[in-house]
Amino acid sequence: MEFCPTCANMLLYELPYMERPARFYCPTCPYVCQIDSKVKIKRHMRVAKKPIDPIFSDKDQMPLNKTSGVSCPQCNHGEASFIQRQIRSADEPMTILYTCAGCKHTWAEN
């Protein structure tokens, strides 16, 4: 996409006509930009990998609240700690992540 340097409108493409080459033109002012027939294509681009930072740190994931009304689906222990996270969009309810106090199994409840 190209923009007019005079009035900042988006330039439109005009097909070649007779001996005139293809060009970009501004619909509001007389600016015209000729298109060069030579295009330089870069085939090899180096992508730099950046280190990925965790979204939640270990301290953020530490469940602090205890509940006794939930049983673990793996070991059937009657006590678990929980933490609430907004995983989906804001209009969806929060997800409750439970961690069993006995076997440390983690499961989610929507």
Rank of each mutant, 00 (worst) to 15 (best):
P5R: 00
P5M: 10
T6R: 13
C7M: 07
C7N: 11
A8C: 11
N9S: 14
L11G: 01
P16L: 05
Y17F: 04
Y17S: 08
M18I: 14
E19Q: 08
P21D: 06
P21W: 13
A22G: 03
A22C: 05
R23C: 07
F24Y: 05
C26A: 01
C26Q: 00
P27V: 05
T28Q: 10
C29V: 02
C29M: 12
Y31R: 14
V32S: 00
V32C: 11
V32I: 13
C33D: 03
Q34Y: 14
Q34M: 10
D36S: 03
D36N: 03
S37K: 05
V39Y: 01
K40C: 13
I41Y: 03
K42F: 14
H44A: 06
M45R: 15
R46S: 07
V47R: 10
V47F: 10
K49R: 13
P51Y: 11
D53S: 15
I55R: 13
I55N: 15
F56Y: 00
S57Y: 09
S57H: 13
D58V: 08
D58S: 15
D58H: 08
K59R: 12
K59S: 10
Q61V: 14
Q61N: 12
M62R: 15
M62G: 13
P63G: 00
P63Y: 01
L64Q: 12
N65C: 03
N65Y: 14
K66F: 15
K66S: 14
K66I: 06
T67G: 05
T67N: 10
G69D: 10
G69M: 12
G69P: 11
G69W: 03
V70D: 04
S71G: 11
C72V: 04
P73V: 00
P73L: 05
Q74S: 13
Q74C: 07
Q74L: 04
Q74D: 02
Q74W: 11
C75T: 09
H77L: 06
G78W: 07
G78S: 08
A80Y: 00
A80V: 01
A80L: 02
S81A: 06
S81C: 09
F82V: 09
R85E: 08
R85T: 01
I87Y: 10
R88L: 02
R88S: 02
S89D: 05
S89T: 01
S89H: 10
A90L: 12
E92H: 02
E92C: 11
E92K: 06
P93Q: 01
T95M: 05
I96A: 01
I96R: 09
L97P: 12
Y98L: 02
Y98Q: 01
T99H: 03
T99N: 05
T99F: 02
C100Q: 06
C100R: 08
C100D: 00
A101E: 15
A101K: 14
G102A: 15
K104W: 13
H105N: 07
H105K: 03
H105V: 07
T106K: 03
T106Y: 09
T106A: 07
T106N: 15
W107A: 03
W107F: 08
W107C: 09
W107T: 00
